[in-house]
């Protein structure tokens, strides 16, 4: 008697699970399969596509490019503190020199900053050298 009653209950639960799986599976396929959908969604936040860096003029950066890519923020911030507080001015490595090769801030700095969603506020007060 007990087994007769409990069997249909177990069966119902199992059936529900199977159905749930059958229903959820296509949704998962849609979510993972159509990359276009995902891009569509994030487009409202960022419209520029992957960073398109303008070719720099000049021969070489003052540091190796891959080092710069990773460390420019610490480098600039450290130099900023040294310049403000110790009066350190290294003219061959000033921001004016950056701008001699990377002439457009929009086509260089802003490209990656927008892409990764960081907003350094340096240029709210300072002007990017021309």
């Amino acid at each position: 008697m007990r087994s007769l009653q409990s069997h249909p209950l177990k069966f119902t639960v199992l059936l529900a699970l199977v159905w749930a799986f059958v229903l959820v599976l296509p949704t998962m396929v849609v979510a993972s399969g159509s990359g276009a959908d995902v891009t569509q969604h994030s487009k409202s936040a960022y419209t520029g596509g992957p960073p398109q860096l303008e070719n720099a003029k000049g021969e070489a950066c003052i540091r190796p490019s891959d080092w710069m890519r990773r460390n420019h923020m610490d480098f600039l911030k450290h130099r900023r503190a040294q310049t403000v507080r110790e009066g350190l001015r290294i003219r061959s490595e000033s921001l004016i020199k950056c701008a001699e090769c990377h002439q457009s801030r929009e086509k260089f700095c802003d490209q990656c900053h927008n892409y990764v969603g960081v907003a350094p506020d340096c240029f709210e007060c300072h002007s990017y050298p021309k």
Binding site: E86, G87, L88, R89, I90, R91, S92
Partner: peptide, 8 residues
């Protein structure tokens, strides 16, 4: 023109 590196 000032030297390349100066410091207070």
């Amino acid at each position: 023109p000032p030297p390349d590196k100066t410091e207070a």
